[in-house]
Design a protein around this nucleic acid. Structure first.
Lengths: 147, 147
DNA sequence: TATTGTTATACTCTATAACTATA
DNA sequence: TATAGTTATAGAGTATAACAATA
């Protein structure tokens, strides 16, 4: 009989590893008073994939009410601005400011530093393979992969 | 200048993908009234890596108080049993019952079904590479990898 | 006194529901 | 009436702190 252990499954390992890595990223973002979801929002705006709050909320798989507070927080530090859509004044068009772009770059640097620790001990080929496959899996489950 | 996007980092992708996959796993476990952490606890007991509640809590990176409720839940469904250590009666020795072993096997089957969906579209070599590298990264950040 | 486990409490994150403005 | 966004409220999950039993 096949006795692959549950801890060896991709599902279980992605879950535990994702939680741990997410926590580490969150710790480092905390010094800038940000959370991973703020970074996700900024990245989505930078990619131009969406602009209205509802569209962004759907892509991020979060409730519209949560998006309000994420946007509030980023707006308060000047990283994003909100403008009413002239063609439909119900819509708030979110846009990254220059400050937001700079902040996003700082967060990216933090993530890349974490990456360097995570791939320590892997060969360049293994690292490249991991990046490629993670992207494929992310895309296959419907996550935005604008890279 | 180097403009790798934050969403393309391993850290960000593991975080988002891990959250999504963890949620999917949790959904399927819910029909058995379990959560991923219950599975993690059973797997740890099955591996024999630890037995006292405090040791298990440390390995799982959860608070001792949380371990009490996880163990309570599993004990109530007959999946684990608690026995006082005769040599140190402060310690509760947790052990998986036969029912627990069967329940763990069911959860493993659920995880493997999820795996099949996640690797759909990957070549066997890519899948094997992903498993290998995830295990290496998990081990490098201190996660138990008894496989 | 220190340690193991337990209970009580509080906090963080996020969703659901109610509401406002615009269409 | 329906939709975009906002505010108010509630729930899940987890940690911290206080406590009891044993060492």
């Amino acid at each position: 009989m096949n006795d692959v252990k549950v801890t060896a499954t991709i599902a279980f390992r992605l879950g535990t590893l994702g939680a741990l890595v997410g926590d580490r990223f969150a710790e480092r973002l905390a010094v800038r008073d940000l959370k991973p979801k703020h970074v996700g929002l900024m990245a989505l705006l930078e990619s131009g994939a969406a602009a209205s709050q509802l569209d962004v909320a759907k892509l991020m798989h979060v409730a519209p009410s949560l998006l309000v507070s994420l946007a509030d927080h980023l707006e308060a530090r000047g990283a994003v601005k909100r403008e009413r859509d002239p063609e439909d004044r119900r819509k708030q068009i979110l846009a990254l400011t220059d400050q937001g772009l700079a902040l996003l770059a700082e967060c990216t640097a933090l993530a890349r530093a974490l990456d360097a620790e995570l791939v320590d001990g892997l060969s360049p080929e293994e690292e490249a393979g991991l990046r490629k496959v993670l992207r494929r899996v992310a895309a296959s489950v419907g996550l935005p992969t604008p890279d």
